[in-house]
Each structure stands twice: as C-alpha cells, then as structure tokens.
C-alpha cells in the first residue's frame, strides 16, 4: 500500500493560473499541467506521497488534492 496524491479535477484552479502543487512538488515530472482539461494531474508511478502538494493546496484553501492509497 502506497499513498499517492490525487487531484480532484472539479476543485483544481490550475485553469486560473495556479501552479502551487506543480511548483512545490519535490519530484520532477510528477505533477503535470494537463493542457486539455486545464487541471493538474499526478503521474502516480512517480509520486512518493510526501503530501507537500496537499499542504500547499489546502493552505491556499483550494483543497483540490488528497492522498489516496494504491
């Protein structure tokens, strides 16, 4: 069981220019901006589940990322 981040598309404000999770993720090429859907998306196999994205997203009151177990 591993914890990985998951974006709640409906809550994500990337389309408004938010890049907090992409910016503060410690892993390269792990949270990407999906141009088509205008949301952030997590590359699950790269995610180490550190939860930093959840912290920055929720402290900005977007609450668009949560940890899920895989």
């Amino acid at each position: 069981m591993y914890a990985v981040a998951e974006v709640v598309d409906e809550a994500c404000v990337a389309k408004k220019g938010c890049r907090l999770c992409i910016m503060y993720c410690p892993e390269a090429n792990t949270i990407l901006f999906n141009k088509e859907n205008q949301v952030a998306e997590v590359v699950e196999q790269r995610c180490k589940g550190c939860e930093l994205c959840v912290v920055v997203c929720s402290s900005a009151k977007h609450n668009a990322i949560r940890l899920v177990h895989r």
């Binding site: 890049r19 910016m23 892993e27 390269a28 090429n29 949270i31 901006f33 141009k35 790269r46």
Partner: peptide, 11 residues
C-alpha cells in the same frame, strides 16, 4: 515545469 520535460528525472 509541469508543461515540459524537466532536465531532471526520478531520483
């Protein structure tokens, strides 16, 4: 970042 391939890989 997030929209291009970074010059650093999974580490």
């Amino acid at each position: 970042v997030g929209e291009s391939k970074e010059l650093i890989e999974e580490h």
